[in-house]
Amino acid sequence: MTLTDLLRRELFLNSFSWHAQDYPQSVTVKRELRRELTAAAAETGMSAAIASFGNPHRLASDYLANLERPYPRWSSGAWWAGAGLYTITFLALSYALGVNDALQANGGGTLSTVVFGTPVLFTHTTDQISAGFQLTWASLGWFLAATVPLFALGSRVWRLWARPSASARPSASNASVSAKRHRTGWSD
């Protein structure tokens, strides 16, 4: 296999993997798809093999559509929580820089204060420019309050309690259900 084919295969699989993160055995499926893609490529070439698998997003959707119920997206949740953490860090740094600028404008010195339950000490002298903080239970509480809801929202954690739904799932017995409805006059 050429390096180009290898890269194209892995690009396809990584895209699939991202979109199929809800799938319970996505790592196993990815491994199987890698084997199947390689096997197909041995017969038709990598371009045709990848083309026959279609769009990786669509493929992932088809795998997910075959599940009995939706599953949480833990990776998305981690990304959301990470984005929240990044935002908090950015705001904290901006605040620290602002306070230090204010100290400098007032001739320097130190400032001890409490921000969201976290004791903070700002110093701006000719020898030292610093911002120190002390972790407390309150600061941990604020941290969790800012990240846990984002993680829960991003991961769609409520899916843990979703009930199985067979209505949209293709199965070998779909025809059976359809025929029975015709005979009995059922409708959805």
Partner: peptide
């Protein structure tokens, strides 16, 4: 396409 078949194979195997 192969992309249509594999998810169904996976489901049939799981079932």
């Amino acid at each position: 396409g192969a992309g249509t078949v594999y998810p169904v194979l996976s489901r049939l195997e799981r079932d």
